[in-house]
Design a binder for these strands. Structure first.
Lengths: 137, 137
DNA sequence: TACTTGCTTGGAGTGCACTCCAAGCAACAA
DNA sequence: TTGTTGCTTGGAGTGCACTCCAAGCAAGTA
């Protein structure tokens, strides 16, 4: 669910990165990066004179945000919707605020649910440990 | 991700519930309940003389636990593995403890990730609100 | 020059977790 | 007696998020 620290080191600040550099930075596969672009989640990635993708620092920032939203279980379709709103310009800001406000509640609820489960897990672990220590006193 | 309070009311404590009662209690569909049983996630559900399933309070408790693990994103295969360990008897307790201990770390990491995202969401919402209040002073 | 590496494309394939279907049976109401 | 409802089954279908494939091109190395 979470990426290693090593993978998260942004390559030299040259402001143009190959697909494999971005893949190792984000932990997404090159396939997924191309797919994100195809479905409109990542728009207007620049190309070299030979047609290869060149990602900018701005693209990396965008992928960071997308990655966080993905970790919260936001459906790809919703992220695409957000990308469309950003592309549409500043007049969509109220709608974007609304989208994030709703998602914030979802995330809050998830944290609540996880905390409840964590308590159950702690209880179970304690129970199993108590039971096994009775076997080997 | 979370069920409504209404759905979570356990039917009259008769200790045998029909599939539709259990469906409305757990929020799972009857299809899913049968599928859980088929894959070994729910074992030995009793039957009426006409062959219909009769769930016990114990089954409901088990489904509560399964539901919590599901909310944390535990794969169904892992839950089946846990069910097998429980069926295998008390000597699998150390393995069960280990399984839960590992999953506890996963859940902790998820909570961390969600908190980070919540902060980003708060920041974005504040930014969008600040930007729109500049337009309408 | 020959080979390897890394990229390109559209479309097809995969894995997961359900979700539905068709055919059929039992119990009850009109 | 004739529906209607609620359940049964194995197997097929669905939606999501990737994931892979085959064919091909450009750049660099032996």
């Amino acid at each position: 669910m979470s990426l290693t620290a090593a993978a998260r080191v942004r390559p030299v600040g040259q402001d143009h990165y190959s697909i494999s550099e971005v893949a190792s930075y984000t932990g997404l596969s090159a396939h997924t990066l191309r797919w994100y672009e195809r479905i409109g989640l990542l728009n207007g990635v620049h190309r070299s004179h030979t047609g290869q993708r060149l990602y900018t620092d701005g693209d990396l920032d965008w992928l960071d945000l997308i990655g966080k939203l993905r970790l919260t279980g936001m459906p790809v379709a919703d992220m695409v919707r957000y990308a469309e709103l950003v592309r549409a310009g500043d007049q969509t800001m109220p709608e974007r605020t609304q989208l994030f406000r709703e998602h914030r509640e979802v995330v809050r609820q998830q944290i609540e649910d996880l905390r409840t489960t964590l308590a159950v897990l702690d209880f179970k672990i304690e129970f199993y440990e108590g039971a096994s220590s009775q076997c080997t006193p």
